[in-house]
Amino acid sequence: MKILIVDDSSTMRRIIINTLSRIGYTDVVEGEHGKSGLEKLGQGGVEMIITDWNMPEMDGLEFVKAVRTQNPSIPILMVTTNAAKEDIVEALQAGVNNYVVKPFTPETLKEKIESLLG
């Protein structure tokens, strides 16, 4: 399964990639903001998206809305520092399937990914 990770922090992308590899997902592509995420998605083969919210160029919310116009069914997990209730609701309304607030444990990421794929 190919997973697209979109986050402007290279440290955070590495942490997510490390966690994914520990739970058996090693086929990963990376984008550093929404625009590059859309480019990577356009190259094909992506079956799931993990995206941050706060990014330059195109933020996670705009990215999710853009993805949903092309692909209404791909699972999207938002992983962000935004913890306010209105933020979570806004992300869900935009088309996010599940939501993780940073900092997270590997167990939470695993649980969320499995619930999206299950």
Partner: peptide, 21 residues
Amino acid sequence: PSISHTIAQTGTTPDENKAHA
């Protein structure tokens, strides 16, 4: 980059906001 509306709820303990989310 776009920024969060508030940092008041941003924690440092892993999964601190999991139950809320």
